[in-house]
């Protein structure tokens, strides 16, 4: 890494040594271009022959509907559970609430398939609840995703709630508002951007979720990412896999674009 070349453009307003600037800005972009954009473009090109077959198939349409169903149900679940947990941690604090908040942060970095793995013990045919039928239903996927993605809703909510002045809640209570009214009319309106950010991110990630579906191996539960895997790796049908991937890319990027527009300058919260 040529520090001289890097340094030349650190002060953005320095007009001299413009040629050095490219050496500083370009390499990361080239890396992403070669390793992400170029492959995705190839995927789109590969998909063209299989386009008609795949889009017309019932298998694809079922998977699309299932994917959206699971993602929306999971997101709604995460929003409800995550909001409740975040409100308690923030506004009805108990000893150890900070530990719980720290735990939530840790969970963001854990692999999702752990949850699916645990479900085989909890709901499996020989497990705690022996609800074998449940394990193969889409609801198992939804429950696993609610478990795994609730922290993703909680994190932005906890941050937003910690910025909410306590005095507002106090004053609202002094004006005669009960907890429910304070929550509805003071807290929720003010953390709405965080709610949208967390919910949007969760919707995106649940649309894309693969590990949980793979590990639960639910027969009736084929989602688009699962279908990409099956077609590409199990059946070696690259064009078919690519066609589905293109739909998935369009879906995800469309949602991502909407989210970025909705959140405006608060881009960082999507990370």
């Amino acid at each position: 890494m040529a520090v001289e070349a890097l340094g030349a453009t650190v002060v953005v307003s320095t007009p001299r040594r413009r040629d050095g600037r490219w050496l500083w800005v370009l390499p990361p972009l080239v890396l992403i271009g070669v390793l992400v954009v170029y492959p995705l473009v190839l995927v789109a090109i590969e998909s063209i022959p299989a386009w008609g077959d795949v889009v017309g198939s019932a298998e694809f349409r079922d998977a699309l509907v299932r994917t959206v169903q699971i993602a929306v149900s999971s997101t709604v679940g995460c929003l409800v559970v995550g909001t409740f947990l975040a409100v308690v941690i923030s506004f009805v604090p108990f000893p150890g609430a900070r530990v719980v908040a720290g735990l939530v942060d840790t969970m963001l970095a854990l692999p999702s398939f752990l949850v699916a793995l645990s479900f085989t013990f909890i709901y499996g045919t020989t497990g705690i609840l022996r609800a074998g039928g449940f394990l193969t239903s889409p609801w198992a996927v939804v429950l696993a995703e609610v478990t795994f993605y609730t922290p993703f809703v909680m994190r932005p909510l906890l941050a937003a709630m910690s910025r909410l002045p306590r005095a507002q809640l106090d004053v609202a209570a002094s004006l005669g508002a009960g907890p429910w009214r304070v929550l509805r009319q003071v807290v929720l309106p003010e953390v709405r951007p965080a709610l949208v950010a967390g919910g949007g991110l969760t919707l995106l990630l649940t649309l894309n979720e693969f590990g949980i579906v793979l590990f639960l191996g639910a027969k009736g539960t084929t989602t688009l990412p699962m279908l990409v895997h099956t077609k590409g790796i199990v059946m070696f049908d690259y064009p078919g896999a690519c066609a589905i991937a293109v739909v998935q890319i369009a879906l995800s990027l469309g949602l991502y674009a909407v989210l970025r527009m909705a959140l405006g300058g608060r881009r960082a919260r999507l990370d």
Binding site: I32, P39, L42, V228, H229
Partner: peptide
């Protein structure tokens, strides 16, 4: 740069893998 760097998060990891496989 933002958009390009967010691309791998925005699309499913399976699709990122498929892309590398194809490319």
């Amino acid at each position: 740069a933002d958009a390009m760097h967010h691309l791998p998060i925005a699309v499913p990891s399976v699709v990122v893998g498929l892309g590398l496989l194809v490319a």
